[in-house]
Design a protein around this nucleic acid. Sequence first.
DNA 1: ATACTTGCAAATGATTTGCCAGTGT
DNA 2: ACACTGGCAAATCATTTGCAAGTAT
Lengths: 152, 152
Amino acid sequence: MTVTTHAPPLVVADLDSAIRALRERGLRISTSRRLVLEALFAAEQPVSAEPLARDLGLDPSSVYRSLETLERHGLVRHVHLGHGPGLYALVADRELEYLCCERCGAVTPVEAERLDPVRAQIRAQFGYEACFTHFAIVGLCRSCATSAATAA
Amino acid sequence: MTVTTHAPPLVVADLDSAIRALRERGLRISTSRRLVLEALFAAEQPVSAEPLARDLGLDPSSVYRSLETLERHGLVRHVHLGHGPGLYALVADRELEYLCCERCGAVTPVEAERLDPVRAQIRAQFGYEACFTHFAIVGLCRSCATSAATAA
DNA sequence: ATACTTGCAAATGATTTGCCAGTGT
DNA sequence: ACACTGGCAAATCATTTGCAAGTAT
C-alpha cells in the first residue's frame, strides 16, 4: 500500500454499487478484483492480504495490487493495529477508526466522528489535524488497564 | 523489537549513569553497546537502526540486538511515525510522544504529560488508556492542514 | 484488438535468528 | 574460565516489482 495520502472516501453500500463505481472510474472488473471485494464485504473485521489470498486462491501479489487499487480509489483503507501486516477494510458509510489493546489484542472500531472531541483537543493544543485511520490508537482496554493497575 | 509490552522506563541522565544502570542489571558493557548508547545520547531525533549501524561500523543485527536489550530494560523506546523503519530514542527524563505530519513529514515531540488531556478524553469516552509512544499521532500539521483546506 | 490484469518468480526493506568466534567480568 | 556478545550469513515477514501470458471491454 504505497498509498500514503489517502484518496477521498468512496462509500459503497454493496458489491453491485462497488462494481458500478469502479466501472465508472474506468476500472475493469476482473474475477480477482470481484473476489477481493466480496471477501471484504463479508469480513467483520479488517483483514490482511495473506489470508485473503489463501482463502480466495489468488496470488498474494494480485491481492496486494487489488487492494492498492481499491485503496487508491477510496473504497478501501488499511490500518496498522500494532506490529504485523496491514489490515484492510472497506470504507463504510461511517468511516471507522480503531482502538486496540496492546495487551489482550481487543480491537474496538469507532465511528470517526466519535473521535472528533479527541481531534479537537489535539488541534487546540498542538495545531495538528489528527487522523487515526492509518495507525490505530493503541493502549490498554479497560479491563487490561485495571488488572495492570492492580498488579502494580 | 520484539518488545510489545514496554518495560518500565529507566531514565538516565548521561552515558555514565546509563552504563552504571546496565551494570547493575548484570549486563555487560561491550564496545558496540557503548557506541549505540553514545549515538543515542548524541541524537536529536529518533534514529533507525540502519544508519546507526553504518555510522558506527557495526553489523545491523548487532545494533538491533543492542537496541532490543536497551529497550527491554527501559532505557530506549522505538516509535513508528509512518511506514518505514522503527525509530529509536533514549527514554528521556520526560517521556516523549510524537505527532507527525503525513504530508510534510514534520515530527513534533511532546512531553507525555501534555497529552494527558487527550488521554483523559479517550479514557472517558472509550475506557482505553491510550499510549502514543509506539505509534505516533499522525495527521496534518497546521500549515499542511491549512493548505489542504485551501486546495479543496 | 488492445490495454489492463494476473500469476509466478525474484527483488526489496526491515528485522530476526543460528552459529561460532571473540570478549567482558 | 565461562557466560554473554558480536559478526556474518541465512532466514523470515510483509510487500513490491518485472515480465510474459491471459482477459475484460
